[in-house]
Design a protein around this nucleic acid. Structure first.
Lengths: 148, 148
DNA sequence: TATTGTTATACTCTATAACTATA
DNA sequence: TATAGTTATAGAGTATAACAATA
């Protein structure tokens, strides 16, 4: 079995190793989430979309998170009950419902993120300045891989 | 809002941006999975562990995937029924059940991986050789972040 | 007549509790 | 007496189908 460095010499090898490493780190980051959290994965996903892209209708959220509308209705209903988001009627279309983050929702999501980022920042301290610099330059490339 | 490059100048900024990019790429890679697949996420996880770390007992698999033993029993039962893994009695301990990949399981998992890797390799072609080289050197660092 | 969202209902996945068999 | 795994049962989460309101 070649080491990771050796295996990434070819492009398909790079794709293979990068895939494994990225998925593994993502899983690790996910497991660093507050376990005593009343928010489900789906709920956190919705809050994340709202904070990144702003208010959205139920249908837009469902399409974005790739769930069916009834599932999103349910997730949003739970988020409203717990005070993380608000429902607002759409001025443009009386059939639509606009979902907006509440202050509690914004704060909760940011706290959840901070917790995971603190763990990652801690780990980064064990790297040399050169290694951190390498990661710094690689990060935009990873972002570019993720976004069409 | 600073650009990603500017935002990563500080270490906490690096942690923040790297987290977002990695989670986003992982999600993207996951969505490139064959949708018409009869394997559940949990099932693919089990096959992945078995191919990486070799045969394991139900209990070891449950601990590894952080599920309760009854859930793993159920997942493994489904995998056995569909021919992806085999159950074997443990020679060392009559209470234990060893789970081993079948040829079909190995082939299915590898096909699933190849599909996702093909997508990533395709995307990598749009990068310059220098950028690919940067990713090549960053990959082992990402792996090190993920593994204690 | 088509679309947005909801309600009704069923299925999948996971968990806890109780049980069987081996150590 | 403790441990590995299973069975029984219940609780989330999501899906499809049918429906109400609006375009």
């Amino acid at each position: 079995m070649p080491t990771i460095h050796a295996a990434t010499r070819t492009d398909s090898g790079l794709a293979s190793q990068l895939r494994v490493s990225v998925v593994r780190l993502a899983r690790r980051l996910r497991s660093e989430r507050e376990p005593s959290n009343e928010l489900s994965i789906a709920a956190i996903g919705v809050l994340g979309v709202l904070i990144r892209e702003g208010d959205m209708t139920i249908g837009q959220l469902a399409a974005h998170e790739r769930v069916q509308p009834p599932s999103m209705t349910r997730t949003v209903t739970a988020l409203v009950e717990d005070g993380y988001v608000e429902r607002r009627p759409s001025a443009a279309d009386g059939r639509s419902v606009i979902v907006a983050l509440s202050e509690k929702g914004r704060e909760t999501l940011l706290a959840d993120r901070r917790r995971r980022e603190a763990w990652l920042a801690q780990r980064l301290k064990t790297f040399t300045p050169e290694e951190r610099d390498l990661l710094r330059r690689a990060t935009p490339l990873i972002e570019r891989l993720a976004t069409d």
